[in-house]
Each structure stands twice: as structure tokens, then as C-alpha cells.
């Protein structure tokens, strides 16, 4: 994984609460054995008409959404299924961070493990972002701050070890593997 310090981008906004991972990527696209190329199926049932053409009114189909790396969504983003295909699809589409006032546990974990930065902010900041699509924001992992165009800086929580991994571009597997001797000792006493 490449190290991530700062993400600076305009936002794309989906002003819906409880966006579940079945919406982010419907189950019929999970019959794959690799993690590549899922971006074209991102939000498939919201994004395309049954004939496969783009739905004109869907936010991500607007010209303004092209190139946006930050997705803002309503409360409880990513609820439901544990499919890691959800962050894979978002990343493949070009998103690098998601912002919401609440992000479901498994989706948040899966996002962190793939370098999609989950940013949880207070309701009033989230409301403001939901009402102002397309603003340019900066997500800074060093200071764990989200900076808004009016100069406001909002602190966001992030698990310290996950942050360390993102900043240094390392994955957690290496750390776990380095714990093998302790794991073996545990197995001897707890078998």
C-alpha cells in the first residue's frame, strides 16, 4: 500500500442514511475470485438503468462528480454485509476517503485495511457537507483533521495503529506475522 498523508479533493455527496453494502456493490457482482475491476459495478442499481445506461439523476453520474476522491454520505454508511468488495469498489472507482456522521463497524475496518480513509464527523459538520456538494476538503492524517473551505478544521477519530499503517503504507499482516513467537507461546498454554 502507498503511504497516505493528505487527501485533497472535491466531494461527491449521497445524501442518504443507512447506505448498506448491498447498495455499494450488489451481491450478484461478488461471484469473483479477484479484487480488481469492481469500480464499474459500484452502486450499480442506483447508477445504471436496467439496459445498462447511466441514470441521469444519480449524483455520481453528474459531470461534477468526475474525479472526486471523497464521498460524503448520510449516517450509518456501510451497514449490512461484511463484503470487502464494498471498499474495493469505492477505491477502484477513484474514491480515497468517505465521510459520514456514523460509519458501520465492519465497513470501517475493511476500509482502513485497504487505504480508504473513513472519516467520522459530528452531525452538524456532516449536515453542512451533505448540503454543500462539490466543496474542496482536505483530510490530513498527520493532524487527524478534516479542513473545510471556510477554514474550519474538524478533528476526526481514527484508531492509532490503523493510522500508523496508513501513514507508513504498511499492512497489518506483517505486524501479526512478527507476533508468531508470542502466538506459539499462547497456543502452548491455552490448547
Amino acid at each position: 500500500m502507498d503511504p497516505i498523508r493528505q487527501i485533497r479533493s472535491r466531494t461527491a455527496v449521497l445524501p442518504f442514511t443507512n447506505i448498506d453494502t448491498d447498495q455499494i456493490i450488489p451481491a450478484r457482482f461478488l461471484r469473483t475470485t479477484t479484487r480488481e475491476g469492481l469500480g464499474k459495478q459500484l452502486f450499480a442499481d442506483w447508477r445504471y438503468l436496467p439496459d445498462g445506461s447511466p441514470k441521469p439523476d444519480f449524483a455520481l453520474n453528474q459531470p461534477a462528480a468526475v474525479g472526486c476522491q471523497v464521498l460524503v454520505a448520510g449516517r450509518n454508511l456501510g451497514c449490512g454485509s461484511s463484503r470487502e468488495h464494498a471498499p474495493w469498489a469505492l477505491l477502484d472507482h477513484g474514491f480515497r476517503a468517505v465521510i459520514s456522521s456514523e460509519i458501520a463497524d465492519i465497513f470501517r475496518n475493511n476500509s482502513l485495511k485497504n487505504g480508504l480513509v473513513p472519516v467520522v464527523v459530528d452531525e452538524s459538520t456532516a449536515d453542512w457537507l451533505l448540503k454543500n456538494p462539490g466543496v474542496e476538503v482536505t483530510i490530513d492524517l498527520d493532524s487527524t483533521q478534516l479542513r473545510l473551505p471556510d477554514g474550519r478544521a474538524v478533528q476526526f477519530p481514527i484508531e492509532p495503529f490503523a493510522r500508523y499503517c496508513l501513514l507508513n503504507g504498511v499492512d497489518e499482516l506483517g505486524y501479526l506475522v512478527s507476533q508468531q513467537p508470542v502466538i506459539s507461546a499462547y497456543e502452548r498454554t491455552h490448547a
Partner: peptide
């Protein structure tokens, strides 16, 4: 509890997970 595919890999390889 449910985990993602990266964590499935962690458990296959080390029988452990990083958790709070």
C-alpha cells in the same frame, strides 16, 4: 463476529486478529 476478506487472510495465516 464477522470480518472482511483481509482479516480472513490474517486468521488463515496467524490464527489471530487485531481488535479493540
Amino acid at each position: 463476529f464477522g470480518i472482511g476478506t483481509t482479516e480472513v487472510g490474517h486468521v488463515l495465516a496467524t490464527q489471530c486478529l487485531l481488535q479493540r
